[in-house]
Amino acid sequence: MLSKRIIPCLDVDRGRVVKGVSFINLRDAGDPAAMASFYDREGADELVFLDITASAESRETMVDVVRKVSEKVFIPLTVGGGIRKVEHVRKMLEAGADKASLNTTAVQNPGVIKEAADFFGSQCIVVAIDAKRVEVGRVAPPSVPAGLALGEASRWEVFTHGGRTPTGIDAVKWAARSAELGAGELLVTSMDADGRKAGYDLELLRAISEQVSVPVIASGGAGTLEHLYEALVAGEADAVLAASIFHYGTFRIEQAKHYLAGRGIPVRQKAAA
């Protein structure tokens, strides 16, 4: 049976992990390779590295980060932030990433999803969607294509540029379009839930999961192990991404897996000795 995945997300700023684990005596908690090895040993199923600077210069640094991490860690690596074109995807894959995550660029130029998926295969292309509940009275600007624009029934809006820019695009419609264009996986972040530790936006996750046939990674809002369970069951997600609950040692990954397994969720656990 296919296991549900637990994916720690590491934010990278100028080549250093920020908000890294502080509860374990790592010699250098800012070193991406050391952090990646740590989470691999902890039982992480995959790792996501996010370049929070997302500039041309930081992209070069990120390539280097990916290269170093992939020397040490033999689980799937996704890299996101500042990937603007197919050439950048190629660079990341060549450096050792398994998947590249597109966000702002995909919204601005959806053709890049198809181009990258045709070239490297859908399995390498993740579309990251930052979604926020639609504010009352909010109407899409006329420039948004009709098939994607917010309508009366729309409940979530896509934001780009690290959540700073509203787009007038309906998040559920955008998810479906991304998958059609060739995204092999969707990383769905609720901006409303993010950082609150009060649980994932389960309605958002379910709405998207029911629209697409590609795996959905839930992101934003994890505060307890129950939240992970809810995202996988009520949210129908295939994987859960979390940052602070693991970085700050609230829970260990094995603990999360043990909990989920106890509630009947298939997870990858270390083989009993």
């Binding site: 549900k4 995945r5 199923d45 859908s122 399995q123 092999g184 590609v214 795996p215 295939d238 990858r268």
Partner: peptide, 11 residues
């Protein structure tokens, strides 16, 4: 009936 690709950890 199942998500395709089959992506992730399996036994």
């Amino acid at each position: 009936g199942l998500k395709i690709p089959h992506m992730g950890w399996n036994q």
